[in-house]
Amino acid sequence: MIGRLTGTLLEKQAPHLLIDVQGVGYELQSPMTTFYQLPAAGKQVVLHTHFSVSENSQQLFGFIGTQDRELFRLLIKVSGVGPKMAIGIMSMEANDFARCVMDDNVSALVKVPGVGKKTAERLIVEMRDKLKDWSIEKTPDSNESGIIKLDEPASNVNDMIAEAESALIALGYKPTEATKAVSKVKNGDVQRSEDLIRLALRGMLPA
Rank of each mutant, 00 (worst) to 15 (best):
M1I: 04
M1D: 04
R4W: 00
L5Q: 04
G7P: 04
L10E: 05
A14P: 07
H16I: 09
H16D: 12
L17W: 05
L18M: 10
V21A: 00
G23D: 03
E27D: 11
S30H: 04
M32Q: 13
M32P: 09
T33G: 10
T33E: 10
T34M: 02
Y36K: 11
Y36F: 11
Q37S: 08
Q37R: 13
A40I: 07
A41W: 02
A41C: 13
K43H: 13
Q44E: 05
H48V: 01
H50M: 00
H50C: 01
S54Y: 07
Q58M: 15
G62F: 00
I64P: 04
G65W: 05
E70Q: 15
L71Y: 06
L74S: 08
L74G: 08
I76P: 12
V81Q: 05
G82L: 04
G82N: 05
K84T: 15
M85N: 12
A86Y: 08
I87L: 12
G88D: 02
I89F: 07
M90H: 04
M90C: 11
M90A: 09
A94Q: 13
F97N: 00
A98W: 02
A98V: 12
A98Q: 09
R99D: 01
C100L: 00
C100F: 00
V101I: 15
V101Q: 03
V101K: 03
D103R: 14
D103I: 11
V106F: 11
S107W: 04
A108T: 06
A108Q: 13
L109Y: 02
V110E: 14
V112H: 12
P113I: 09
G114R: 04
E121N: 10
E121D: 09
L123M: 15
V125I: 14
V125P: 12
K130D: 10
W134I: 10
I136T: 11
G146W: 02
P153E: 07
A154K: 10
S155D: 07
N156T: 13
N156M: 12
M160D: 13
A164L: 13
A164T: 02
A164H: 05
E165N: 03
L168S: 09
A170I: 00
G172C: 13
A181R: 15
V185I: 08
V185G: 01
G188C: 01
D189W: 12
Q191I: 06
R192G: 01
R192T: 10
E194A: 01
E194P: 02
D195K: 07
D195T: 07
I197V: 15
R198M: 08
L201E: 02
M204Y: 00
P206N: 07
